[in-house]
């Protein structure tokens, strides 16, 4: 990891640290539970877990304001939980039930929440990047001061439409933050084997878009970088690129035999760089929390996740009438 490490003393309150711990832990435990339900056959199809990358979304959500938008690709459960979507609705969508965010018609990769300004959940690598710039286009058109977090991976960063979008976003000063979650593997192909230069954030230079690399295993560094990017966008200066160097512990999807990296590499990351352990250490070493405080949080999270799994199992499958609904809108949707 050639990423920047925050060296100064964290400028963060005990409450905020605890929130980070809680929010990241929620994602991890939720994803572990999702993996378990997948193994039991309750979740089908593709299921891409976010375990290891939790600090990225939690740090950036801390930099967002009410009304800001977010859009991502298919490794999307973490983004949904971080922006405040209900774990029950997310898990029930994973099990394909009526109580899911898309009433069982979207699945793991296609979920949305108008209320939380979460615009998906998109299954085509790179296709959400112009969509995110389009959301920012609408915000600029409406002069509402909002910014859009457009997440994609190191793999998507090699799609042509990303650069078409960089060009137009810079040309039109769109308030969009391009968040490259570089977890080092595009499915099974390492960045070294897929990407001609090591620093993806520098690819904005050709379009005049500023960018920087961020240590994605350090939630405080992510938040700080996010605040800088948000300030840049909100002030009307156009897009900004954050390349957040992170790591996924699990396979690309549930059916990934993971022969492209060693077990030791993964274990080393878990042991030395884990984002949740990092915050845990900060909380304990700074005497911001006791072991008991953290145990209480662990328990609360376990209950939330178990409740979401129960809900997702109990929620009925969609009625057969659902097959035929939502193909066309009858009235103009109020998306914004």
């Amino acid at each position: 990891m050639a990423a920047r490490k925050s060296t100064k003393k964290p400028n963060v309150s005990a409450d905020e640290l605890k929130t980070f711990y809680r929010d990241m832990l929620l994602i991890r435990r939720f994803e572990e539970k999702a993996g378990q339900l997948y193994g039991m056959g309750l979740i089908g199809g593709f299921c891409h877990l976010y375990i290891g990358q939790e600090a990225v979304v939690v740090g950036l959500e801390a930099a967002a304001e009410e009304g800001d938008k977010r859009i991502t690709t298919y490794r999307d459960h973490g983004h949904m939980l971080a922006c405040g979507m209900d774990p029950k609705g997310v898990m029930a969508e994973l099990t394909g039930r009526e109580g899911g965010y898309s009433r069982g018609k979207g699945g793991s990769m296609h979920m949305f929440s108008k209320e939380k300004h979460f615009y998906g959940g998109h299954g085509i690598v790179g296709a959400n990047v112009p969509l995110g710039a389009g959301l920012a286009f609408a915000d600029k058109y409406n002069e509402n001061g909002r910014v859009t977090f457009t997440y994609f991976g190191d793999g998507a960063a090699n799609q042509g439409q990303v650069y078409e979008t960089f060009n137009m976003a810079a040309l039109w000063d769109l308030p969009v933050i391009f968040v490259i979650e570089n977890n080092q593997y595009a499915m099974g192909t390492s960045q070294k084997r897929s990407t001609s230069t090591p620093d993806i954030y520098t690819r904005g230079e050709a379009f005049g878009i500023p960018g920087e690399a961020v240590d994605g295993m350090d939630v405080l560094a992510v938040k700080e970088a996010g605040e800088k990017a948000v300030a840049h966008c909100r002030s009307g200066k156009g897009p900004y690129i954050l390349e957040i160097k992170t790591y996924r512990y699990r396979g690309h999807s549930m059916s990934d035999p993971a022969k492209y990296r060693t077990r030791e590499e993964v274990q080393k990351m878990r042991d030395e760089k884990d984002a949740i352990e990092h915050v845990r250490d900060l909380l304990l070493s700074g005497s911001h929390a006791t072991e008991d405080d953290l145990k209480a949080i662990d328990k609360e999270i376990k209950e939330i996740v178990n409740a979401s799994a129960e809900f997702a199992k109990e929620s009925p499958v969609p009625t057969s009438e659902e097959l035929w609904t939502d193909i066309y809108a009858d009235v103009a949707p109020q998306n914004a």
Partner: peptide, 26 residues
């Protein structure tokens, strides 16, 4: 120029931006 916009020659990209703008209420 705010409502009548020349794009670069980049159909994939501007079609996607159009779709995103529609998601955003335009």
């Amino acid at each position: 120029g705010k409502r009548v916009i020349d794009t670069p020659i980049t159909e994939h990209g501007f079609a996607g931006i159009g779709v995103g703008a529609a998601f955003g209420g335009l």
